[in-house]
């Protein structure tokens, strides 16, 4: 593979972009995510980062940082925000609003039912 071809697409990006809207999706048990961290899930055509901050809540954002496509699931989480691991843009977990630049990522509701994480794709916030 040429260098260009490799850098054109980030490794966690999925190939298709078919919306899987209108569904609620079971992402498995919450203990798949270590407390205070996030993990990236492939859901239909999207890649969604699910976060499990220490406050006990769950949040989900599109995993792709609008700056240069950093994987937000690899960021540091705290105080209701996540910091992108590549160049430090900071996003509010609840809304996806970027706190230091004018940008935003999509956020999705995710709820805990019987210890399982249920992602709601229809209700994009």
């Amino acid at each position: 593979m040429t260098l260009e071809a490799r850098s054109a697409r980030a490794c966690w990006e999925t190939d298709v972009d078919s919306p899987a809207d209108g569904r609620s999706i079971d992402l498995g048990t919450v203990d798949a995510i270590p407390v205070g961290e996030g993990r990236a899930y492939r859901v239909g055509g999207k890649t969604v980062a699910v976060f499990r901050p220490r406050d006990g809540r769950l949040y989900a954002l599109d995993n792709r940082c609008p700056h240069r496509a950093g994987s937000l699931a690899d960021g540091i989480v705290g105080g209701g925000a996540v910091i992108c691991p590549l160049h430090g843009w900071k996003f509010e977990l609840a809304s996806g609003r970027c706190l230091n630049e004018s940008a935003r990522v999509r956020s999705y509701p995710v709820v805990l039912m019987d210890g399982r994480m249920i992602l709601l794709l229809e209700g994009e916030a």
Partner: peptide
């Protein structure tokens, strides 16, 4: 590993459900 998903990259939803 300190956690079973310490080195997990992208988790596929069908696998997560299983």
């Amino acid at each position: 590993p300190v956690h079973r998903s310490q080195f997990r990259g992208l988790i596929a939803d069908d696998e997560a459900r299983a």
